[in-house]
């Protein structure tokens, strides 16, 4: 009885999903530029030149787990998500939350015993791990300020710039 009920409900949800799917997948063209600034505080937001990166790397799955209206490419993901029909949003922040370590979020993650994705990085981690690892590998710029300018709050935070202790040199590089 109960199982049948669940099946019906699941069916309805899935149906709704497929109906609404085209609405997400209409815009198939990648954006030319993306403003990433939802977390900007110590640093300014990043004007991400999407077009440039598309020119460099044509394979979207290098950066995205998937994109609009396309099948999930990675084997690991496809095992479960092969039939989603490209309906998930490719925007990082839709899955990678801004505050992954609040008590509430940790509890949410742990209380669902069926959850497969337990080790999902937060949004800030997702951005930096994805961008910076590639930048390091390809020899692209890797210093913090190469991508985003430090704000005044940031300088204060790092005791840098005009907040630098006397005698110290600020804005150093790892080289």
């Amino acid at each position: 009885m109960k199982i049948r009920k669940i099946r019906i409900i699941t069916g309805i949800i899935l149906a709704l999903f497929f109906i609404s799917a085209p609405a997400f997948g209409v815009d198939d063209e990648p954006p030319t530029s993306v403003r990433i600034d939802s977390l900007s505080h110590l640093y300014e937001g990043v004007d991400f030149d999407h077009e440039l990166h598309v020119d460099i790397e044509e394979n979207c799955s290098v950066c995205h787990h998937h994109r609009f209206s396309s099948e999930v490419a990675a084997d690991r993901c496809a095992a479960c998500h092969s039939e989603c029909g490209g309906t998930f949003s490719p925007t990082c922040s839709d899955c990678h939350v801004a505050e992954p370590f609040t008590g509430k979020h940790i509890r949410q993650m742990e209380e669902d015993p069926h959850r497969f994705h337990v080790d999902i990085t937060g949004l800030k981690g997702a951005y930096h791990l994805k961008c910076l690892n590639c930048h390091i590998e390809t020899g692209a710029p890797t210093e913090c300020v190469d991508c985003h300018e430090r704000t005044d709050a940031g300088n204060r935070f790092y005791s840098s710039g005009k907040y630098a202790p006397t005698g110290g040199k600020s804005g150093g590089s790892h080289e």
């Binding site: 005791s159 840098s160 110290g168 040199k169 600020s170 804005g171």
Partner: peptide, 18 residues
């Protein structure tokens, strides 16, 4: 950590990697 706990100013800036 320094800012959270109000620790003394560092001798060198936190972005001085020397």
């Amino acid at each position: 950590c320094n800012k959270e706990h109000g620790l003394p100013e560092p001798e060198l800036p936190f972005d001085d990697f020397s």
